[in-house]
Amino acid sequence: MRHLLSTKNLSRDEALQILDVAEDMAAVNEREVRKLPALRGKTIVNLFFEDSTRTRISFEAAAKRLSADVINFSAKGSSVSKGESLKDTAQTLAAMGADGVVIRHHASGAPQVLAESDWIDAPIVNAGDGTHEHPTQALLDAFTIRRRLFGSTSRGRDLAGVSVVIVGDILHSRVARSNLWLLETLGAAVTFVAPATLIPFGAEAANWPAAISYDLDGTLRETRPDVVMMLRIQSERMNAAFFPNAREYAREWGLDDARLAALGPDTMVMHPGPMNRGLEISAAAADSPRSTVLEQVANGVSVRMAVLYLLVSGQAGEGKANA
């Protein structure tokens, strides 16, 4: 594993290795001095072509806790907004001696283009590309589910038999895609719930490893899921005729108080954030003990520490296929 571009090609062993190393990192994060010397002298560049304060500071915290030097390169107000190409930006970073690049880009596939180019040699971590993938989000979600289910006996375990319902804008969601492939690899069963306009075209015909439903109430009743993951709904979708308005969306596909009350006692409620309270998730659902929202944020740092450690220190299993 030289880069982390997608969860699609991540093997079960590679995924479990990352999750298990993240357990070690979580232990570090619970200590008084939350710092390891593992990446001392290494430079990690956060290359963000799209605003995302949450993901950027999570990666920044992860790199700093590994003692790496961190450079934040934000496209806004930089040479990128003046029309500099991805190629020139990458070559500039390579010339400065970046040891690892964390890239967030509005174009699907940009991290892969970077990884396969000869512009830069450093390991590339995809921190979200277009509507393609967001692999560290899926890894932190899996880590969070595993910890909730198995606690201190999590190490080495996959998610066989776990039922996960993912609700909302699947079409535009890189989180949903990365979760689908990773959860499948780890043995979980995934159901996508959304209006037909927000289901990826051709997913049913192509046998994506997910059940697809338009009916949230029916799905919750029938699958009794272990996990309900709500996705953020962006208001511009209403203007593009994906659904009529926020009221109708919340009524049909929002996790409101009635639906929350009907969930099984151990069902987790997840959300990658930032949340639209009152739209896809009610305040009661977001703040309930079932909600893992803040655990997800904390675990995000541990998982990203694991990924950076494995890729940048060269500790990832040698000879394994690129993921």
């Binding site: 895609r177 075209f201 051709g202």
Partner: peptide, 15 residues
């Protein structure tokens, strides 16, 4: 081309 592959790759489909 719009299809399962464009959905997987996150590239906007041309139906």
């Amino acid at each position: 081309n719009e299809g399962a592959l464009s959905s997987e790759l996150g590239l906007k489909g041309w139906p």
